[in-house]
């Protein structure tokens, strides 16, 4: 091989045969260093699939269904902002909508799509007002389902129960429960204060 570099300016490399492959043995067969025959390929494929399928076949053969840990549900007769099935399926979307509505659009309250009740879009004041400590509800289910790296909501948002606040202080913090909410406090602020999300259809 010449020590000249490959040349993009001329049509062919300088002093190079055109189009010929040099990686050929004298008899013209491709000279691969080692060629895996079909049997090896299938063996490899099988091993790969076996490895990839580990969670499946292990669960089928030896696994027992993991116990769903009991979630700490709100005491008394309370309804969530949307019905349970919707919340189970779409709470990440709802929380993201709330987050962007409050932080980015300056909106304040949410009108439930299932019964028209109104509540502030607040993780601490609305969600935790009923659910109490996040460890017994959010974390427990997320741990069970192994979703997400870690719930980092609580790096910033406060969990009044986990903070060990007294019952008295808690009720101060968690003041605005849904039913007690006054309707829109017309303040002259031009920011629209309500977010309504189109009713979801089952």
């Amino acid at each position: 091989m010449t020590d000249r570099p490959i040349d993009l300016c001329t049509a062919n490399g300088p002093g190079r045969p055109t189009g010929g492959r040099e990686n050929r043995a004298s008899d013209g067969r491709p000279r691969f260093i080692g060629y895996a025959g079909p049997s090896k390929i299938y063996l490899g494929l099988a091993a790969g699939l076996l490895g990839l399928g580990f969670p499946l076949w292990y669960a089928l053969a030896l696994g027992r269904p993991a116990e769903m840990p009991p979630l700490e549900m709100p005491a008394g007769d309370v309804r969530c902002v949307e019905d349970a099935a919707y919340m189970r399926a779409h709470h990440p979307r709802l929380l993201r909508q709330w987050r962007d509505a409050v932080v980015r659009d300056g909106l304040d309250s949410y009108v439930s799509a299932c019964d028209g009740r109104k509540c502030p879009m607040s993780l601490t004041r609305t969600c935790l007002a009923c659910h109490g400590e996040h460890r017994g509800f959010c974390d427990r289910c997320h741990d069970y389902a192994r979703v997400g790296p870690k719930l980092d909501c609580w790096d910033c948002h406060l969990d009044p129960v986990a903070k060990g606040l007294s019952q008295n202080r808690r009720s101060q913090v968690l003041r605005p429960r849904m039913t007690e909410l006054p309707t829109d406090s017309g303040t002259g602020s031009r920011i629209q204060t309500t977010l309504s999300i189109a009713p979801h259809q089952p």
Binding site: S122, D152, D155, C156, L158, K163
Partner: peptide
């Protein structure tokens, strides 16, 4: 103050 977030 519990009703205002801290930062991370």
């Amino acid at each position: 103050r519990p009703d205002y977030p801290t930062r991370t």
